[in-house]
């Protein structure tokens, strides 16, 4: 009965989102997009020994927006910050077995959200060291 342009993987991440929620004291966080445009993602990370120990998301948006945020958190957990910030929108889309053309912007937003959260962590860490 499921009729959509989405892959099974997208639907799985939409129906069973991984790492959805919030981190109490995140080391880095970001909010990208805005509800007026249709999508807004929030990513929070916990960093230990230069590696992403925990990542959580919250998303206002369509099926693709929720699925891309979900899988990106999965893709960065356990990675070093340098590895994690190399996450590209193409890699996110590929990991979901592809996205419909008019939903590619969701993967772009997800990759941006990850990079912004790492950036935010770095600013914090740097600020803390001073």
């Amino acid at each position: 009965m499921q009729h959509s342009d989405y892959s099974e993987k997208v639907m799985d991440h939409f129906n069973n989102p991984r790492n959805m929620g919030e981190i109490r004291n995140p080391d880095g966080e970001s909010q990208v997009g805005n509800p007026t445009c249709g999508d807004m993602m929030q990513i929070q990370i916990k960093v230990e020994d230069g590696k992403i120990k925990e990542a959580k998301f919250k998303t206002f948006g369509c099926v693709a927006a929720i699925a891309t945020s979900s899988i990106s958190t999965e893709m960065i957990i356990g990675k070093t910050l340098e590895e994690a910030e190399k996450l590209t929108n193409d890699a996110v889309a590929l990991a979901l077995d592809g996205l419909p053309a008019h939903k590619r912007h969701c993967s772009v937003l997800a990759a941006e959200a990850i990079q912004a959260a790492i950036q935010n962590y770095r600013e914090h860490a740097l600020g803390g060291a001073k």
Binding site: Q2, M11, N15, G38, F60, G61, V63, I66
Partner: peptide
């Protein structure tokens, strides 16, 4: 308010 339509539609679809 605070949710997006496509997500609602798809979740409703999964419930028939």
């Amino acid at each position: 308010r605070y949710v997006e339509g496509e997500g609602m539609i798809m979740m409703l679809v999964s419930r028939g």
